[in-house]
Simulated scan of single mutants.
Amino acid sequence: MQSNNPVFRRSEEFNRSGANAYANQSTGGYQGYSSDPSTWGTGEPGSTPETHARPGAPMTIDSVVQKTGISLGLVILAALATWVLSPEVNADTAAADIGPLITAVAIGSLGAFVLSMVNSFKRVISPALVMAFAVLEGVALGGLSKLFNMAYGEGVVQGAVIGTFAAFGGTLAAYKFFNIQVGAKFRAFVVAAVLGMVGLSVMELILSMFGAEIGLFGVSGLGMVTAVAGLVLGVFMLIMDFDFVEQGVANGIPERESWRAAFAMTVSLVWIYTNLLRILAFFSQD
């Protein structure tokens, strides 16, 4: 099958033809994983079936979980380090004193964006680049979270963190138990919407340089429209991630592709977190 998701489109393994035929052989699917999400299991990473073996260890649900855990762990550690090592700020802090935080957000965001583009279009996934992306993303999120904590109170950051993991768990449960099917039109819509949102972000950034920003991504009424839309898109992105993990396991693709899946899910979760942060901040205003 061919993907419209740029993260997976560059992987020949995810787009291998004959995936369904391979997954639905009499053995019930490669590594015991069938096309029905309710029958998913957790094989040992590195194990191979007795027949139809492919070179190298295949990707499993366990290997994806492990790599995603590493990626998210780096995001969290980098965010905590940025929070702890940056100067203390509060509502009375002068604008000049929050400069280090703003610098951390700018450098982290720019670096993470560049590496996200590289990882999305790189044909052979690089674990080192995925981990570097996670660290830079963590630096940006740590600075951003501290700024929101200063402006809107501690509950905003805590609520966004809890909400992000709740969204992940809820989306995974819905995907598995309701057997959600991801079609070509759905993929095309989500990718187009995400690219459109990125385009709006770039436009807003350019306008802000000239003091003419519209407020599409601020904590305002108009900003809430994009925040809610972004949150919904983040959930849709997770559904696409789960679908490609399922298809990848069914294809018996190489274990290294677990890093591609981990990268995609990290992007989706960061997307959800930042939009939840804006939504909660909006309702926390005096």
Rank of each mutant, 00 (worst) to 15 (best):
S38M: 07
V135K: 06
L129M: 15
A134W: 08
L74W: 04
N20H: 11
D36Y: 03
H52T: 08
V114I: 11
A112E: 14
L80K: 10
G29A: 01
I102W: 05
S35G: 03
S38A: 03
A21H: 12
G43A: 11
P100G: 00
G73M: 01
V64D: 05
G73W: 05
L85S: 13
A134F: 11
V64I: 06
Y30N: 06
G43Y: 03
S109Y: 01
V64F: 15
N90I: 13
A23L: 12
L147N: 06
W83F: 15
A112S: 14
L72W: 03
N90C: 13
P49N: 14
S26L: 15
A94I: 03
L77K: 07
V84E: 00
I76Q: 05
P45V: 09
T93M: 08
H52E: 11
F113H: 00
V139L: 12
L85I: 12
Q31E: 09
I61C: 04
V124D: 12
P87E: 09
S47M: 10
T42S: 07
L136D: 02
I102D: 10
G56M: 09
M150S: 09
N90M: 15
S35L: 04
M131T: 09
T48N: 14
K122W: 12
F148D: 00
P100H: 09
A140I: 04
G18Y: 09
Q25V: 07
A21M: 06
I125A: 06
A21E: 12
S145C: 06
T68S: 15
V135G: 01
N119E: 15
A151S: 06
R16I: 11
Q31T: 10
A79T: 07
L136N: 01
M150P: 08
D97A: 14
A79V: 12
G46C: 04
S86E: 00
G69V: 07
S126K: 01
A94H: 03
D92W: 07
Y33R: 04
G99C: 02
S63Y: 05
S120T: 07
T103A: 15
Y152V: 03
E154N: 14
W40K: 13
F121G: 02
W83E: 12
K67R: 15
Y30H: 08
N20K: 13
I125P: 05
R16F: 14
R54L: 10
T82N: 02
T82A: 04
I76H: 05
V130T: 14
L141H: 00
A78D: 02
A78R: 12
T27H: 10
A151N: 10
K67I: 07
P49S: 15
S86I: 00
F113T: 10
S63W: 09
V89S: 15
P49L: 11
T27G: 11
E137V: 05
N90S: 15
L74Q: 05
A53F: 11
Q25C: 03
K146F: 00
T48M: 14
G28W: 04
S86N: 05
A132E: 14
A79S: 15
S34V: 08
P87S: 02
T68F: 05
Q31H: 03
T60V: 00
I98S: 06
L141I: 10
F148W: 00
G142P: 00
V64T: 09
A79W: 00
M150G: 04
D92F: 11
S47D: 10
T82S: 01
G41H: 07
R16T: 13
A140V: 08
L144I: 14
